[in-house]
Simulated scan of single mutants.
Amino acid sequence: MKISIVCVGKIKEKFFRDAIDEYSKRLSRYSKLNIIEVADEMTPDGASAVWEDQIREKEGVRILAKLPQDALIVTLEIAGRNYSSEEFAAWIEDCSVRGKSHICFVIGGSLGLHNSVCKRADLALSFSKMTFPHQLMRVILCEQIYRAFRIIQHEPYHK
């Protein structure tokens, strides 16, 4: 299975990059991981709701341009569907059984995703009702994908 992550912005902190690199290395046993970064927009302090939507729209255009045509698109959204780790693993395995060989996860910028990107999704996925920094979310997503493949392979992994 091929996994892509389309995300807004670059990872600035070394500790986040190191964690992503570690999970990417671990995932290489199970899947080909491709991380595609698109440029983020600067959000001025006190930006109006209209201004923020324009920023999400600009980032959304960049995201949509990078989505693989052959992939199942999964957006990360607070209002998305919640899974346990086991349910998430079962969903990935089911995708594979149904002939879906490419899953693309989408992580928005600091303001979230534009509606045009959300409409393109085959699944809206939520890891929590809490808000996480988009850079940290990339680490969490990589870890959960790795955990899912360990579960699918019936391999031990810490709980």
Rank of each mutant, 00 (worst) to 15 (best):
F149C: 01
H134Q: 07
M137Y: 01
D122G: 12
C142V: 02
C118Q: 14
V117N: 01
L136N: 03
M137E: 02
Y146C: 10
S128E: 11
P133I: 01
L123D: 12
S110C: 03
R150G: 07
A121I: 04
P133D: 10
T131F: 05
S128V: 06
Q135L: 02
S126C: 04
G112L: 15
I145S: 01
A148H: 07
R120M: 15
I145V: 14
Q135W: 03
C118P: 15
A148Q: 05
M137P: 02
Y146N: 11
I140N: 00
Q144P: 12
F149K: 10
H134F: 04
R138C: 10
E143T: 11
C142L: 02
F149R: 04
L141K: 11
K129D: 14
K129A: 11
C142F: 01
M130D: 09
L111V: 03
K129Y: 13
L123H: 13
G112W: 06
V139L: 06
V117F: 14
A148D: 03
F149Q: 07
T131V: 13
T131M: 14
L113Y: 00
Q144I: 08
R138K: 04
A121F: 06
R147H: 06
A148P: 02
L136R: 06
N115F: 14
C142T: 08
S128I: 10
M137A: 04
S128Y: 07
R150C: 10
L141G: 04
A124S: 15
F127K: 10
D122H: 14
F132V: 06
L136C: 06
I140R: 01
N115R: 14
S126L: 03
R120T: 12
A121D: 08
K119R: 15
L123Q: 12
K129E: 12
T131A: 01
H134C: 14
L125K: 00
K119T: 10
R147L: 03
Q144E: 11
L113E: 00
L141Q: 07
H134T: 00
R147I: 08
L113M: 02
R138L: 03
M137H: 05
V117I: 11
H114G: 15
H114P: 14
F132S: 03
F149L: 15
R120G: 13
F127S: 04
G112I: 09
Y146S: 10
F132K: 13
M130H: 15
R120D: 06
Y146E: 03
M130G: 12
L125P: 05
S126V: 07
Q135T: 05
L141A: 04
A121W: 10
T131R: 08
S110R: 14
R138F: 01
M130R: 13
I140L: 04
P133G: 12
F132W: 09
C142I: 00
L111M: 06
A148S: 09
L113D: 08
C118V: 15
S110D: 10
L123W: 08
K119C: 15
R147W: 11
Q144D: 09
L125E: 07
P133V: 13
F127R: 00
F127A: 10
K129R: 15
M130L: 15
M137I: 11
H134M: 06
R147M: 10
Q135R: 03
L125S: 06
V139Y: 00
F127C: 12
